[in-house]
């Protein structure tokens, strides 16, 4: 019988010595021996880290310090498809200056094509070569915006710039992080929350299965987990149900508050009837 990969968690402060201690303990407890590691945070957009929508750079800094005592560490920073220089805005240039860690702009790295079989279909992804060749440590945040984005999405967005199911599955299989430190200092589950926890593990799908219920989602509801299994995963040292009860579980508007197209059609009809004017958010697709 195959032994299930460990997923370990603990409560933490959001910064300072309490955070550094928690990170060091988790690295000592469950990180494998690694050489020449790439640390990959979630910095997909210039959201403030207190929102939980991106990884808290303080967690990354504590992790870099903890890993640097045993191996060479490089901070691998993906391009954001939304905001130029998002990692810099999130403070990673300053972090590199403080810690002396080398940085690697993943968008400028050589790439390799890899093909993965998913549900009897072949899917090819192009990923930065260093993510394919080196030991990767993923440092996701816990966000549900509204779909779950944790370890596997962070890896996929860094590797491919995509969070489409097939890209998430394939990129996760190709990159296959050696270690995941999920940052729950701040979380986003429809609303920000100071979660004050960390979850670590050596298997990205196992970490995602473990934290999905914390975000209020059953693993089987997370489509990209299916090829890796959707059973419940316990977190040593934490109760997922207790954490879930602490977090807000609000609906995230996928349009970010912008009006859906159907309202535009209704408004244009109203404007045509009354002679009123049509604001730009309602004018899309109009033949008026």
């Amino acid at each position: 019988m195959t032994e299930s990969p460990r997923v370990v968690g603990r409560r933490t402060d959001v910064s300072g010595p309490g955070l550094a201690g928690a990170v060091t303990d988790l690295v000592a407890d469950c990180a494998p021996e690694m050489d020449d590691v790439l640390v990959v945070p979630d910095c997909h957009y210039a959201f403030h880290p207190s929102t939980g929508m991106v990884t808290n750079p303080d967690v990354v800094e504590a992790l870099v310090e903890a890993l640097a005592s045993t191996t060479d560490v490089t901070l691998a920073l993906p391009d954001s498809q939304w905001v130029e220089d998002a990692p810099s805005m999130l403070g990673y240039d300053a972090l590199a200056d403080r810690t002396g860690v080398e940085t690697l702009a993943l968008g400028e790295a050589d790439t390799v094509e890899r093909t993965v079989r998913i549900d009897d279909e072949r899917h090819t992804v192009t990923v930065p070569k260093p993510l394919d060749e080196q030991a990767v440590v993923a440092v996701p945040t816990l966000r549900a915006d509204p779909d779950l984005a944790a370890a596997m999405v962070t890896v996929a967005e860094a590797a491919t710039g995509s969070r489409e199911r097939s890209d998430v599955v394939a990129a996760s299989a190709v990159v296959d992080p050696e270690f995941v430190l999920l940052d729950g200092t701040y979380t986003f589950t429809g609303a920000p929350h100071k979660g004050r926890f960390l979850v670590a593990g050596t298997d990205a799908p196992a970490v995602d299965r473990a934290v999905a219920p914390v975000a209020g989602l059953k693993p089987k509801a997370v489509d990209y987990l299916r090829p890796f299994g959707v059973g419940r995963e316990a977190i040593e040292g934490l109760h997922a149900e207790d954490l879930a009860a602490e977090l807000p579980h609000e609906q995230t508007d996928p349009n970010g508050g912008e009006q859906p197209a159907v309202m535009g059609a209704g408004y244009r009809l109203y404007a045509k009837m009354t002679g009123d004017l049509v604001p730009p958010q309602f004018s899309g697709g109009s033949d008026d």
Binding site: Y45, P254, G257
Partner: peptide, 16 residues
């Protein structure tokens, strides 16, 4: 220049 979650539209470079 930024958006409320989720990220969905690129921010024009001049805005930053």
């Amino acid at each position: 220049p930024f958006a409320a979650p989720p990220a969905r539209q690129p921010v024009s470079g001049w805005m930053l």
